[in-house]
Design a binder for these strands. Structure first.
Length: 220
DNA sequence: CCCTGATTCGC
DNA sequence: GCGAATCAGG
């Protein structure tokens, strides 16, 4: 698989929604978790809340990645001697202490949500925000056997005694199995055994190409 | 061991 | 640019 614009877009969306690389890889299909991560980084989508601790990365080979020598102290220790403890004045609950001169505490932007099948966002009991509609509005309906499959032998109907020769192509609405009584000892009925098992001819002898299984190449 | 993301490096 | 291999942490 290759990274088409569409797939890149899906990757972006899912990554930003907080789906794990594995989930994204599954959903996209044809790519590994590593591929997803690699692509995400190449795209510049980087390091969102990951379960991995943000410890230094002392790669054994390369030079140490830019380690911040000293994060610019937002407040000098000298500027605020221990006066505060001596001031019994009614203070705001400790939360505001560190962000005193600045604006009110910034509400943490990345809300952690989980993503359900179909791409909807699950909400916790405490969530008061209106439900976010699924990106692609899909209606989930109970699976119902399609009209042209009723009466046919489905995967669930297969037993030891039933011919398992596939009729049609998997994934198509009318895909089913032969369903005849099997040739005892074989997974297929007598007719399909004749198709499945070809006599071994001496080497070098030409023979007409055998009929392709699954009803031959798909025609659309 | 399972999972996670990050990084490297040969292709 | 891609992604397997590898690393490192939960």
């Amino acid at each position: 698989m290759s990274w088409t614009d569409e797939r890149i877009d899906q990757l972006r969306t899912m990554w930003e929604k907080g789906m794990t690389a594995s989930q994204i890889a599954d959903e996209l299909g044809g790519v590994s978790r590593n591929a997803v991560i690699g692509k995400a980084h190449r795209l510049g989508l980087q390091s969102r809340p990951s379960p991995v601790k943000a410890t230094e990365t002392p790669r054994k080979k390369a030079a140490a990645p830019v380690k911040k020598p000293a994060p610019p102290p937002r407040q000098e220790p000298e500027a605020r001697p221990a006066v505060q403890s001596a001031a019994p004045a009614p203070q705001r609950p400790a939360a505001a202490v560190s962000a005193e001169p600045a604006a009110p505490v910034v509400p943490q932007q990345p809300r952690i949500v989980s993503v359900g099948p179909g791409g909807f966002l699950r909400q916790g009991p405490g969530d008061q925000q209106a439900p976010i509609p699924p990106a692609p509005p899909r209606r989930l309906v109970p699976a119902k056997p399609s009209a042209d499959i009723i009466g046919k032998t489905s995967l669930l109907d297969l037993t030891e005694k039933i011919c398992k020769w596939p009729m049609g192509h998997p994934g198509e609405p009318d895909f089913h199995f032969c369903g005849e009584k099997v040739n005892p000892g074989f997974p297929y009925c007598v007719e399909h055994c004749g198709r499945a098992y070809q006599a071994q001819l001496p080497r070098g002898t030409r023979r007409p190409p055998p009929p392709l299984p699954f009803g031959g190449p798909r025609v659309r």
